[in-house]
């Protein structure tokens, strides 16, 4: 068995003077959602790695901003950077996430960022 070759230059070539995630700008297909849309987080299988927190799965949220384009963390973690998608900043009501959250503080929220393939319209 021969040793694999790791291309250690590819990211530095792409991102130098530009930055990351800026270096992936323009590579994603058109965004499926816009600010104000209501979305639900899919409970996709999360074997080995994910950055879509368990506490968000199945919950509904409102899109507050389209933040950037990037490969999803799940792919980039193995240096697979071909499939770039939009990332959305989403606002969840605390009462949506936590059934025991006190109604007196029903205005409280969580904001976090999730890539498009985890989202469905609701």
């Amino acid at each position: 068995m021969s040793k694999p070759h790791y291309d250690r230059e590819h990211h530095v070539k792409k991102a130098t003077g530009i930055g990351d995630p800026q270096c992936f700008k323009g590579e994603a297909p058109p965004a499926k959602f816009k600010v104000g849309d209501r979305v639900r987080i899919k409970d996709l299988p999360d074997l080995f790695y994910t950055r879509t927190q368990a506490y968000t799965r199945g919950a509904e949220a409102t899109v507050s901003r389209l933040v950037y384009e990037s490969p999803p963390a799940e792919d980039e973690s193995w240096d697979n950077t071909e499939n770039v998608e939009w990332f959305y900043s989403l606002v969840f009501d605390m009462t949506e996430l936590w059934p025991d959250y006190h109604a007196a503080f029903a205005k409280d929220t969580v904001e976090t960022e999730i890539p498009e393939h985890y989202l469905e319209a609701c």
Partner: peptide, 8 residues
């Protein structure tokens, strides 16, 4: 120096 990326 490209040995790994932040996500890995």
């Amino acid at each position: 120096r490209g040995v790994w990326n932040a996500e890995e």
